[in-house]
Every structure is written in structure tokens, then in C-alpha cells.
Design a binder for these strands. Sequence first.
DNA 1: CGGTTTTGACCGGCGC
DNA 2: GCGCCGGTCAAAACCG
Length: 236
Amino acid sequence: MVDTSLGIDLNVTPFHKTDDTPMNNDLTRMSLENKKLREKLTTVWDKNNTLQNHVNKLMQDHELLVNNLNKRKFVECEEGNTSGRTETLHQGSLKRPNEGVTRVYRRTDDPSDKSMVVKDGYQWRKYGQKVTRDNPSPRAYYKCSFAPSCTVKKKVQKSVDDAHLLVVIYEGVHNHESMEKEPDDTSNRRLNSPMEMLKYDEALVEQMANSLRRNPDFIEDLADAISSNILEYDLF
DNA sequence: CGGTTTTGACCGGCGC
DNA sequence: GCGCCGGTCAAAACCG
């Protein structure tokens, strides 16, 4: 049997007890050890799948929460517009989402980097910085250097979930050419299409799961949790 | 010296 | 009306 999902050859030599030569004894022992190893690997693999499913579920829950929050803001805005409060709400802070607003995710290799510089080919002038309630890392506000003729703004803030991820929100469209070609390196990559974002999310989940698997403390905690669960189960 | 960044103050919307 | 919060302003500091 070859387990391709793990990429490991788990072939076990068939055990036929024909004679008791030292060579056959060794083979028997190896087969038994192979069997044990295969069982252990299966257990670890199952637990890994459970963990990965859990991480996936958490990510989905978070996504749903964010979507619901955005939807609620949009509904409030729509309701405000139909109840005669058009002027104030149109110019207020509750803007209709995705109206000239682009959200871009960029990966940074150094999560401790506080500069939050995002090379996108345009020149920007920082005009403010604020710590928001939902995120401990500050949000930086930029205007296009061609202002006031170009009114494009952008907000840059680290993702609350992943310090490696910068969330850039562009508002408006430039009425001029960019200064330079956009860099196409992997450390500062744009993720615009939904498919790209989905793939990136999957890669993130995989990365999180891998880092957890490499963490001896986590393995130890996991083993403790499992063994305590088994003990509790045995008691009942 | 001119452009950019920093940072506290201010403003307007919103919920209670 | 008041407090909270996100967004913007503007003076001072900084830098090339």
C-alpha cells in the first residue's frame, strides 16, 4: 500500500511465519515496527486533519463575522437614505462598500516592521495615524502626492489575525500614471482576484498548521489534552 | 529650504 | 446631551 496523500511509502513486508532463522526474526520485528509506525502515522494524520478542519472553521467563522459587520453597515446606510436623511448620510462616514474602494492584501516578511510601506507605484503623503478599536496595530492614512488634483486616499493597517499581512484600502481612482513599474516579488504581492485571495487563505491555513506542528510546546499541549481526554473517557 | 512625517487637537456621525 | 470612535487637520519636527 502506498499512501500518496502523505508522500510516504508505507509498504509493509507481508509476514509469513515459515521458519525461525535470525534473518526472518529481524524481518518479523521490522514488520511489527512498521505496523506500529503506520498506526501512529495514521493517528497523527487524523489528528492533523481534525486540527486543520478546526483552523478552517475558525477562518470561515471570522470571515462570516466580518461580512456580517460590513452588511449591517450597508443596510443601515440604505435605511438612512430612504428615511429622508439623505444629505447627512450621503456625506457621512457610512459609505456604500466597494464604491471606488479597493481592498488589497500584501504580505510582509517582517511582522515587527512598523513602517507599513507598501510599494504600489504611486507616491503618497501620510497625513494621519490612528489606533483603531478592533486592531492593536495603528492605521496609517495616506493621500496621493498629486493632491488636490488627484483625490485618491489609502489606509494601511496590519491584519488583526496575521502580522505578516498588510491590509491596504484604496479609495478613488488615480487620474495620472504611476511613477514606477509595480514590483512583482513574492514578499510584496498583490492579491486582487477572489481566486487568488482564496488560494492565499488556503496557503495561510497550511502555514499556520505547519507552524503549529513544528512547535514542540503545541505538540506537548496537544498530547496532554488528548491523554487527559482519554483518562476522562476511561473514568466514565 | 521645501517636502514629508509625526502627533495632539478637532470634527462629525452614531449609539445610548 | 454626552461619550466613543474613525477620519482629518495643522503645527512642529525631521530630513535630504
